[in-house]
């Protein structure tokens, strides 16, 4: 009786991608398929051909992270509307990699959780990278950037984010190097404009090309006059959203002058 629900729930809890297709109008309303990316299908919509077409479409929708209604003929025909099927994609949460166990990290990890990210905090210094300091993170790694990217690099895509907060060239140069080699949607790097200018020289030296440099949001965050770690975390998260949606927002990268300036009079 609850085989479909259990299969769906199990995949969601295990953070594996899964799609649920439900007939919402037409013959067999309520009939369902649970579809997994490898082609595994549970359930039936009432006709094998309709099952085949809808499960194929569900795999595509799942890959694109889309949720919506599609229409079919009773036997899966395209351009017919006998049956409306709601295909719902459940994707694992996006990943936020935060490099550097600094003051700003705890606030950013909290804000990242608020947005639904799977937050991983990494720092090579075992004294600082502790679960006790970052209880809100899903994982705290005592590791160099290479190790972190060996583990997560292939999984990063347009909805994921890398935030490099170390201010330390021996950590942030390799982190940027590995980040630009992934498909990650957002790369933010903390530091003053001067720090970033020196960093750019080092990045050129290790062979990061202009295309890679252009992906960096540095200084990290929107130019909203944030000062505290919490305000900075909000400005970074807002920049991540703007970056993903393509909406206009004033990034610090695109402005000039001091990052922290006194509030405007008035």
């Amino acid at each position: 009786m609850s085989e479909l629900y259990d299969r769906l729930r199990e995949a969601i809890v295990d953070e594996r991608p899964v799609a649920l297709a439900t007939v919402i109008e037409g013959h067999n309303a309520g009939a369902k398929l649970v579809v997994e990316p490898d082609g595994y299908v549970l359930g039936t919509l009432g006709h094998p051909e309709l099952d085949r077409i809808v499960s194929r479409d569900a795999v595509g929708e799942l890959a694109a992270g889309r949720t919506g209604v599609r229409h079919y003929g009773a036997e899966g025909q395209a351009r017919e509307t006998d049956v409306s099927v709601f295909i719902e994609s459940f994707s694992p949460p996006p990943i936020m990699l935060v490099f550097g166990a600094v003051d700003f990290t705890a606030a950013l990890a909290r804000a990242g959780k608020l947005l639904g990210f799977n937050v991983i905090v990494a720092d090579a210094r075992s004294v600082f990278a502790t679960v006790k300091r970052f209880p809100m993170a899903d994982r705290v790694m005592v590791a160099w950037p290479d190790e972190v990217f060996d583990h997560y690099g292939d999984r990063l895509g347009p909805h994921d984010a890398v935030c490099i907060l170390t201010h330390d060239p021996k950590f942030d140069v390799p982190a940027v190097q590995r980040a630009v080699a992934t498909d990650v949607g957002y790369i933010g790097v903390m530091g003053s404009r001067r720090t970033h200018a020196t960093r750019l020289e080092r990045l050129h030296e290790v062979g990061v090309d202009q295309k890679g440099i252009d992906r960096l949001m540095a200084p990290i965050g929107l130019d909203i006059g944030s000062r505290t770690p919490e305000e900075t975390a909000i400005s970074v998260c807002a920049e991540i959203i703007a970056n993903r949606t393509g909406h206009a927002a004033p990034s610090l990268r695109d402005s000039e002058g001091p990052i922290h300036r006194p509030p405007a009079e008035g």
Binding site: S2, R9, I12, G68, V69, E88
Partner: peptide
């Protein structure tokens, strides 16, 4: 639906009848 799964499970364990409403469009 993700965010209501934990509560749904509790309800099911308690043997409650449950109706699910989803925004489809």
């Amino acid at each position: 639906m993700k965010e209501i799964l934990a509560d749904l499970n509790t309800w099911r364990a308690e043997g409650r009848q449950v109706a699910l409403a989803r925004v489809v469009n």
